[in-house]
Design a protein around this nucleic acid. Structure first.
Lengths: 188, 188
DNA sequence: ACTAAAAAACAGACCGGTTGGTATGTAGGA
DNA sequence: TCCTACATACCAACCGGTCTGTTTTTTAGT
């Protein structure tokens, strides 16, 4: 049981860094220090089953993180800024923020595997749900909250892509700076 | 010379759809109806040289498109909405908007090839420059314009990722609806 | 408590197929 | 007679996946 968890954790990290196709089974095996027989014992349906397990694990890790931050701040504005701040700190410390996104998996697999696509959709949907509830608590209508939650997700995800590309945290900083304007809409 | 262009066009399309690693040379050759010798005649340094040529071609196509739209509208607000509208129309017509993004290439290659990463950075930078000039013409200061240009890029890119994933154009519609709030900042 | 059978966990050789890349050859125009 | 443009055969390396065998742990019978 411990081995299965090890495989998931390492594979998750690799998939986030290099994408699904970009990581070979042998690389995962080597990094885990296990054999092919062991992997196929825990994941009889091979690589894609492993990916699904990784996405599931990622789901809990990411939504758990975000929930914690959003419970610790009174408004969406403060919470999102704290969240982005955490991303930036992590980026400075670890030199990457690939642990907080999986856009590489999405863009690779969206057109190839429907089940993977749906799993990713579910993940983003759960993240937006957290934003949504906080926004409603802030006084926004359901429709406004839904739109704003999507906007937050899109801009942060896009900013992370730009950060990874230009190896700067400037995009996330700018987004953190401009997002409040969206959050200061007059409520109806 | 015609063959080289054919290769670039088809390879560009495939790279955008499935990413760099996701497309094999054989697939490109088959789609082009040419042989391996022909490809390596035009691109002696192989796949990565072809990718660079594709990125260059993409650069001109995308920035050309955006320039045209931005010249045809008086304000940044109108232009961005028209641009997103065009994306949505294209999405409805062709069922995909992978022709307007290359996030799959970015997220795959950002950590693998520095030259590819830099080429992508240049491309995004040129796009943001177009936004920037229009924003300055709108009356924003240089710093404001720079920030807003980045925000437009990030949110649209993030929205495109979400659209491709959930096979809906809702994310782009929402972004198009909320972006004006950023563009109505009081100018200093 | 001791043991033997059964099951779970793991190891490694092997498979056909595909990968990007190379080397050699040829058709055709200048 | 070159040189460009293309075609073909071939290469080692690697891909995901299967197979068989071995070790380790759990379970069951006495």
């Amino acid at each position: 049981m411990d081995t299965k968890l090890l495989i998931i954790n390492i594979a998750t990290k690799l998939f986030q860094q290099k994408g699904y196709i970009g990581v070979g089974l042998n690389e995962i095996l080597k990094e885990c220090g296990i054999s092919k027989g062991s992997l196929y014992h825990h994941f009889p349906n091979g690589k894609e089953e492993l990916l699904m397990a990784c996405l599931h694990s990622l789901n809990e890790a990411i939504t758990g993180d975000i929930k914690e931050i959003f419970e610790g701040h009174s408004t969406t504005k403060e919470a999102t800024n704290a969240m982005i701040e955490k991303l930036i700190v992590n980026f400075e410390a670890e030199g990457t923020l690939s642990g907080y996104t999986f856009s590489s998996i999405v863009s690779e697999m969206a057109s190839l595997s429907d089940s993977v696509r749906k799993a990713c959709t579910k993940l983003y949907s759960e993240i937006q749900t957290i934003y949504f509830h906080k926004l409603v608590a802030d006084g926004f209508t359901n429709e406004e909250a839904s739109s704003i939650a999507l906007m937050i997700t899109a801009s942060i995800e896009g900013a992370m892509l730009l950060c990874l590309m230009q190896k700067t945290m400037e995009p996330l900083q700018v987004v953190s700076q401009l997002l409040p304007q969206i959050l200061e809409t007059r409520r109806s």
